[in-house]
Design a binder for these strands. Structure first.
Lengths: 66, 66
DNA sequence: TACAAATGTAAAATAAACTTTACATTATAT
DNA sequence: ATATAATGTAAAGTTTATTTTACATTTGTA
């Protein structure tokens, strides 16, 4: 699965730590999701997308191997 | 988090086992997600929504406690 | 009513998400 | 060039997702 978190963060001009704080997870969790170390839960995906004002599909995209 | 899986399944007229097979998880996993025993990964949410022809937000909805 | 299909559920095992702490590297501004 | 902020990463620990097997209950149908 791919994601556009880094880009959306840049548009909002917020750091990984900012985003983490806004959805109540650790900064490392955001870093790990953003760099595809693991797949977030649906609750986190919904919260992240909501902060960006985008749908989950606009932020996270399935790939062939998923 | 709430979900509309049961309703969307009814619209498509498919069983939990059918849905499970289509996204390559066990039937128990679908049953557990559908009855809110746990929160699916974003990959599963995207696959489930795609089968229903709906967005993730149309199938899964955040609640206050999330 | 009886049979079959669908759903609910439970326990044990494994994999994966997430936290905390801590430190290293990279980028940015002064 | 130096200080500071941001990001990358790692290890250990806890919690949660997911699988497998198995059985019980409910629902639909002949």
């Amino acid at each position: 699965m791919k994601n556009r978190i880094r880009i959306e963060r840049a548009i909002l001009d917020i750091t990984q730590a900012d985003l983490a704080e806004r959805i109540n997870v650790s900064r490392q969790t955001i870093n790990a999701i953003e760099s595809n170390k693991y797949v977030p839960s649906t609750v986190l995906a919904l919260k992240i997308a909501r902060i960006f004002g985008k749908s989950v599909e606009e932020v996270f995209e399935l790939e062939e191997n998923d």
